[in-house]
Amino acid sequence: MAYDAQTPAPPEALDVAQVVKANYRALTGLFALRLLISALLVAIPVTLSRVTGTNSFVLILPIVPGMFLFIYTVYRLLYGLRVSQCARVLRTYPLEFHPRVVKKRERWTRYGNVFEVRVTTRGQHGAPLMLAVNAAGRRRWPEGTEDGVWFAGDLPFGGVMVVPGGKEMFFLKPADWDKTARRRDEADPERRARAEQARLTHRTKRAVMMRPGA
């Protein structure tokens, strides 16, 4: 790929193993923090109740949000397996630098924020609109994407987007699976086999972007 004054040169290549490790750490830290908060919300009122010998409603009130936070954390734990899905894609495809990604819009879901993005490739037109979710469970859109991103995968099937620096990793699938069907059908056997190996050959709906295998 050639670069000119308007096109950012690719940054230093990323260490894939370090990218995956960083996202596993981020995911673990997120769940650990939530579990700690829920434990404190339950433990502190119980301890104070035993020490003071009172069962005041105000005193035990924090237990309710603590239990809800614990249930929500356990519920979300299943969807943290998306990091494993990304790791599989990164083992199957090399990272390639794309000079620009455009975030069109975003939507809140209980599984995580779903972003609609377009990953552009210099010299090619008609890049499909993609759905993207942060693999480590973060809901915010990261900084730095305006200078380009790393992508591993095959856009009509899906893939993984990594922001330069390697700390933000997103799982991507086509926003309109049916609209990109022709591109997948026209893919040669090697491309289809690779997508199957990375488990990118199944439809993904917006509301279940965080589900394993979706």
Rank of each mutant, 00 (worst) to 15 (best):
F170D: 04
R122A: 14
R76A: 07
E146Y: 05
P164R: 03
Q18R: 08
R34P: 00
R206C: 02
P99M: 05
G158T: 08
Q85M: 11
R203D: 11
K103W: 05
R118P: 00
N113T: 15
Y93S: 05
R118T: 15
A13E: 10
T54F: 09
R50W: 13
F31K: 13
T47W: 13
R140S: 15
T54Q: 14
W150I: 04
Y79F: 14
A187N: 05
P94W: 02
D4R: 07
R100L: 12
A9K: 15
Q6E: 14
P11F: 04
C86E: 06
T145V: 15
A198E: 09
G159V: 05
R194I: 00
K173W: 06
R122M: 08
I71Y: 11
T145P: 05
F97P: 03
K167S: 14
M161W: 06
Y79P: 00
G66C: 03
P212K: 01
L155K: 12
G165K: 03
G153N: 10
L41D: 03
A9L: 12
D147W: 08
G159P: 04
D178V: 07
V114H: 11
A136V: 03
A2I: 10
Y3M: 00
R118G: 00
R139A: 14
E146K: 14
M169F: 03
S38T: 06
Y24D: 10
A132C: 07
T54H: 14
P65M: 02
K173F: 06
M209E: 06
L30G: 13
A26G: 07
R203Y: 08
I71P: 01
T92L: 02
G213H: 02
V16W: 01
R82C: 12
A193M: 09
G158H: 10
F171E: 01
T145F: 08
P10H: 04
F97Y: 12
R140F: 13
G165N: 04
D178S: 09
D178Q: 11
V160C: 07
F57C: 00
M209L: 08
G137H: 05
D15Q: 05
K104H: 14
D147P: 00
T52D: 08
R139L: 11
Y93P: 07
V20P: 02
A2N: 14
T28Q: 11
D185I: 02
D188T: 01
V160E: 03
L14F: 01
R105K: 14
K179V: 04
V46G: 06
T54A: 11
